[in-house]
């Protein structure tokens, strides 16, 4: 499995993502610049966190219209796995690859803390390393993470089991509707989430709960389950 990390002006979690993928898979990920019009041959595309284009207009809005996003949309339509974390999630919603939108945090302040996540749907290539209802730890760091979807859209997301993770144990840090922390697209090959699993990969990070997400996305689970 080969992964590619898309870098935008203002991405700042791209190196964390690169380190996480190399630590887990032993292979360096491709790096793709936002002006590129083609993606390298890969099985997993990652949009990392940060403040692309300074969050101008709306978080992720300008990046979502970058040339590379046409290639990402084409790959996603072909079934290639796409993961957007934090700003990457905002970019995927702005690009229309995921439903809903990420608004200013309900408390208006930037939140940087650890939250608890409940695995809402482990029947998916990204989350199959977890069990239904499992509670994992994950850090968040964002200003615009308040997930919103219109009632009709929300009902569809829920009935299609498109919620991947929910904030658990009263740790919703931003007012997200239905405590939604991460959603899949309808086909299940695109995942966006506000928390940062790439920051819980090694024991030195204080935990390894994020590791299984990448192992699953890279089809490496058999080798680690033993």
């Amino acid at each position: 499995m080969k992964a590619a990390i898309v870098q935008f002006p203002g991405s700042n979690r791209d190196r964390d993502m690169f380190a996480a993928l190399e630590t887990i898979s032993g292979q360096p990920a491709h790096k793709v610049w936002h002006t590129d019009t083609e993606l390298p041959n890969c099985d997993l595309i990652i949009l990392p966190g940060g403040f692309s284009h300074g969050d101008y207009l709306r978080s992720g809005a300008i990046a979502a219209r970058a040339p590379v996003m046409r290639a990402v949309a084409t790959a996603a339509a072909q079934g290639v796995r796409v993961l957007g974390v934090c700003n990457g999630f905002q970019i995927l919603t702005e690009a229309g690859l995921l439903p809903g939108s990420l608004m200013r945090n309900a408390g208006l302040t930037f939140v940087c803390r650890e939250v608890m996540l409940e695995v809402a749907n482990p029947q998916n290539p990204f989350t199959c390393g977890y069990t239904q209802g499992e509670i994992i730890r994950c850090p968040v760091a964002h200003h615009d993470g308040n997930y919103f979807a219109a009632p009709k859209t929300l009902a569809k997301i829920e009935s299609n089991n498109q919620v991947a993770f929910r904030y658990a144990n009263g740790t919703n840090p931003n007012g997200s509707v239905n405590d939604i922390a991460g959603v899949f697209n309808k086909q299940g090959n695109v995942l966006g989430m506000m928390p940062h699993p790439e920051n819980l990969i090694e024991a030195a990070h204080g935990g390894t709960d994020g590791r299984r997400l990448f192992e699953a996305a890279l089809d490496m689970l058999e080798s680690t389950a033993a």
């Binding site: 608004m103 945090n105 208006l108 308040n146 919103f148």
Partner: peptide, 13 residues
Amino acid sequence: LKNGVLDPQGKAI
């Protein structure tokens, strides 16, 4: 913002 969309900034103002 559309009706029904939470506006925390408007609330603060």
